[in-house]
Design a protein around this nucleic acid. Structure first.
Lengths: 342, 342
DNA sequence: GGATCCTCCCAAACCGCTTTGAATTACAAC
DNA sequence: GTTGTAATTCAAAGCGGTTTGGGAGGATCC
């Protein structure tokens, strides 16, 4: 069922039918009504490939999700994508998604762009030595970064939360509670967000004249066992931490598991603050959340990213847009004053 | 840079250039070489919309991910998609993904199909009263179900794990260990997989002449707090369970958290078996996994689903294919003999 | 009455690729 | 020298829409 058949059924030209369906003004109300009704009756739906070819727009946004070396799929991506997907369906766009190993990420962006499979792309998980912005520039594809690429803060469009500030505040909170040995369980620090969180952590310490202890700082893919193993090592170590600052709820669950297993009570014997991306399957809410946390919804970030990309960047690709999301610092049950006999 | 320009630069017809690039035999080796080199030199990439229009194939598979009433994004979907995505890039297909509220799932499939945005689709999360197969049939779109739609086992293509058998075996294991009060924390039982798991659980009990206790059976979206709250309620109840059978690692973590908090030891005081989808951010591996589990990798399921859909179903949509994945029953640290003074 | 302006509709070009059907050339066979 | 065959190459016709540039008919204005 194509336009031609529909127009023949109506004894109208394809032009008129097309215009009627797409809301152009140079069609009488009566004709439009007739067209719309007939289209519905015989179940006409425009072929999207043909439309894309004719208009030159793909009406799709590309996402490339990297799978890390260790085959880890970060659930944060999924939640971001859920937010973006909601916005896409509202705005009439499609999402074309590629899930590829780290090493093929650039190639995937190149493909989406040069084959015109997407009008624009979202850059996920920027690294401190990222080069994707250059590739996308030469390809002429508008894009928005979820996070920031160092050195590209002004020139590029991005949406990001204030990682450094959030972790500085979290660290301050622990320091205010009297903690001095604070462990940082971070994500991989070649990722920009993790590097920023570390800087925030370090800044809070140095602001009070404290030094950082490399034995208490780790980075890895943020799995549950990563949290558990790190906590076990550190708590069994010579000079154990009294508090943990963790980059992900998932790893924080591992930390909590180990603390309980050792017969310690979280929030009393050991404090934990985690970053909470507000993942839907790990709600940490209510009046008195399980974990004290810095919270920023990635799902909302995804939604805003899609909106910004479609509404601001596509119509005007040369004006960079920036959006800051402040993380909330929310007090829960997992923090309390330090009781260590310093 | 399009075909026409490329062919002019080579003083060849578009036909020949197209054939040379697409590997057709009726082009001399020398000409092909010349074409390929020039294409690379001037950076020609075929416009995929045009190609799709001309060939009539979208070279894309559609996925529609439902977001449940409670706004929950099931991470299982993401992992499935990671597996499928790997296969798609290998096979030259794209994935077009829609994330929509439960109520709009049908419409999303309809759109993908009637607008020819995808050559085939994957049906996620079948329910016991699902109707998507009918819609897709009338639209004439090949599809593969991840799971099964009751009554459609023979006629449709699907890939599924043996949910009933896995949960029956898990229950048997607990019964063998002497447990008699076993709680089932299931997913929502209007989902086919959850209904099957429940049947497996009940079958194991009735096989030994035991009856089920409604107070020990719950169903919900499988979040961490769901596990925690259910465990807390039940353990504080009049006649607490000595073992838990949980449909998801995420909820199992919640169960484990509560058990530890109550000063009980998991595996000794209370046993837990969980289904383990082998989510990459929740590894439960090693010689002696944290959780005793029934394990079946959804990522592998995603990969196989994509392969089956592209290699078997697309060329021959009328021959249904079925693939069974058996779950392994893996003994970990979370199960042990029942010590309850019955 | 004629020029001007809308309103509404249409034929045809175009988007960039694939594919059909045919033409050209070269060479061997008869 | 004609014919048959294989190897190359090409012009043109789609694929199914959108968009350009008119054109017909009626109303408005001098």
């Amino acid at each position: 069922m194509n336009l031609k058949q529909l127009s023949e059924a109506l004894s109208l030209s394809q032009t008129t039918v097309s215009r009627a369906l797409n809301g152009y003004p140079e069609v009488s109300a009566e004709t439009r009504k007739r067209v719309v009704e007939m289209a519905r009756k015989i179940g006409y739906a425009p072929n999207s490939q043909a439309r894309k070819l004719a208009t030159g727009r793909a009406m799709a946004i590309g996402h490339v999700i990297p799978v890390s070396q260790h085959e880890m799929m970060n659930p944060v991506f999924m939640e971001f994508i859920a937010g973006a997907g909601e916005a896409y369906s509202r705005l009439g766009y499609d999402m074309v998604l590629k899930v590829v190993p780290d090493a093929q990420v650039e190639g995937a962006y190149r493909e989406l762009a040069s084959l015109k499979k997407a009008d624009a792309v979202i850059v996920h998980g920027p690294r401190i030595h990222d080069t994707r912005h250059e590739i996308l520039d030469t390809l002429g594809v508008p894009f928005l970064i979820h996070g920031r690429i160092p050195g590209q803060e002004e020139a590029r469009s991005w949406i990001d939360m204030n990682n450094a500030h959030a972790f500085e505040r979290a660290t301050d909170l622990l320091l205010d509670l009297g903690h001095r040995r604070i462990a940082l369980l971070n994500g991989l620090e070649d990722m920009d967000f993790a590097a920023r969180r570390r800087r925030g952590f370090e800044k809070a310490l140095t602001n009070r004249g404290l030094s950082t202890d490399p034995a208490l700082m780790r980075q890895a893919d943020m799995t549950e066992p990563y949290g558990a193993e790190s906590a076990l090592d550190m708590l069994d170590g010579a000079n154990p931490p009294t508090a943990f600052l963790v980059s992900s709820m998932i790893s924080a669950l591992g930390v909590a598991r180990v603390i309980s297993q050792k017969g310690l009570q979280i929030g009393r014997d050991v404090s934990v603050i985690t970053h909470d991306d507000a993942l839907s399957f790990l709600p940490n809410g209510g009046d008195d959340p399980i974990f004290t946390c810095t919270r920023s919804s990635v799902r909302y970030a995804g939604q805003r990213a899609a909106e910004l990309l479609i509404e601001q960047i596509l119509p005007n690709p040369d004006v960079p847009v920036h959006e800051y999301l402040e993380a909330e610092l929310i007090i829960g049950q997992s923090t309390g004053p330090c009781h260590a006999t310093a």
